[in-house]
Design a protein around this nucleic acid. Structure first.
Lengths: 144, 144
DNA sequence: ACTCCAGTTGATACTCTGTCTCATGTGACT
DNA sequence: AGTCACATGAGACAGAGTATCAACTGGAGT
C-alpha cells in the first residue's frame, strides 16, 4: 500500500473528510525522500500546478502530525522539518547529506530514561531523540 | 563564581570584546530560571530599562551558544528556547511545568549510538536528546 | 440524483522570529 | 589620548506560522 493511500485511510478512520487538497498533500508527502519542510511542500505543490493554499498545507501537516503519519523533527540548524513515518513511537536517524531518514526502535533507551527519572526525581513524560550522521551511501566519497 | 562572571571570562578568553551589552545579556541569562526564549530576554531587558537592541540580543545569544554557555533546545511545541549550561556535552531534562532544566551526563547513550550506527551503516555525527517531564517539586500537587 | 450543513478551504492580513545593512559607537591596544 | 577593527542599534526585511472569514464541498440522509 502506498504511503498516500495509507494516509488517506488513516484520515478516514479518524473521521476526517477525504478532501481533494488532503489527498494531494498526502501524495506530496509520500513523494518526499527524507525530511522536508512545510515551505518545500508548498513549493512542490506549486511546481505541480496544484492550487492548494499555503494555509491548507500547514493545516494538513498539523493533522498528519496529530495522526502520526508524519513527525516533526528539528534539524541541527534549528529548521523545522517533517518526516513521513509510522505512527508508533520511535526515533529518527537523519543523513545530513542526502536528508533521508531511517526509523529506529527504542533500543534500551526506555530503561535509561526510567533510571534518570528515578535518580533526579523527575516524572519523564516525553522525550526527543534525533540522530544526525552520514549514511553509508553518502559516506562513500564519489565511488561513481 | 556567578554565571554572568563566568560567561564574561569565557568571552574574554575566546577573544571577544567585553562590551556593556554583552555583559548585560550575560546578566540577563544568568538571572533566568530554566529555559528562556530570545523574545523573553528582549522583554526582560526592556523591563529593566536596559537599552539593548533586539539584534544585539540575538547576536549575543548566538555567540554564547557558540561558546557553549547556553544551549538551544526545542520545546515540544516547536518553540526555540535556550538554557544556560556548562560547556561540555550533555543533555537536558526540562520540567514542563516550571521550566527549570537539569543537565545530565551521557549515561550509556554513547554506546547505544555506536551500536545503532554500526547496525545501520551510519556514521553518527551528532545527536540531540531532550527529556521533558515534571520535576519533583511541581509533581507534588500544591503541598503548601 | 438531490439537498443540506458542518467541516474544510483559499485568500489575505497579520504576528512573530530571526537576519541584514549600515552609519555610529566603543573596547582594547599602543 | 589616538586609532581602528569589532560591535552596536535602528530599522528594513524575509520567512514561518496563525487568524479570519466568506465561499465551497464531501458525504450522509432522503
Amino acid at each position: 500500500m502506498s504511503g498516500a493511500a495509507r494516509a488517506v485511510e488513516t484520515l478516514d478512520r479518524a473521521g476526517y473528510r477525504l478532501t481533494a487538497p488532503r489527498r494531494a498533500v498526502a501524495e506530496l508527502v509520500a513523494a518526499q525522500e527524507g525530511h522536508f519542510t512545510a515551505a518545500e511542500l508548498v513549493a512542490d505543490a506549486r511546481a505541480r500546478r496544484l492550487s492548494i493554499g499555503r494555509a491548507t498545507i500547514f493545516r494538513a501537516l498539523d493533522t498528519f502530525a496529530a495522526l502520526g503519519l508524519v513527525e516533526r523533527v528539528d534539524l541541527p540548524d534549528g529548521e523545522h522539518a517533517y518526516v513521513a513515518c509510522d505512527p508508533v513511537h520511535h526515533h529518527h536517524v537523519i543523513c545530513t547529506v542526502c536528508g533521508r531518514s531511517l526509523d529506529i526502535e527504542d533500543m534500551g533507551l526506555g530503561s535509561i530514561l526510567g533510571d534518570v527519572g528515578r535518580r533526579l526525581g523527575f516524572r519523564i513524560t516525553s522525550h526527543r531523540l534525533e540522530l544526525f550522521g552520514v549514511c553509508s551511501a553518502c559516506d562513500r566519497p564519489a565511488t561513481t
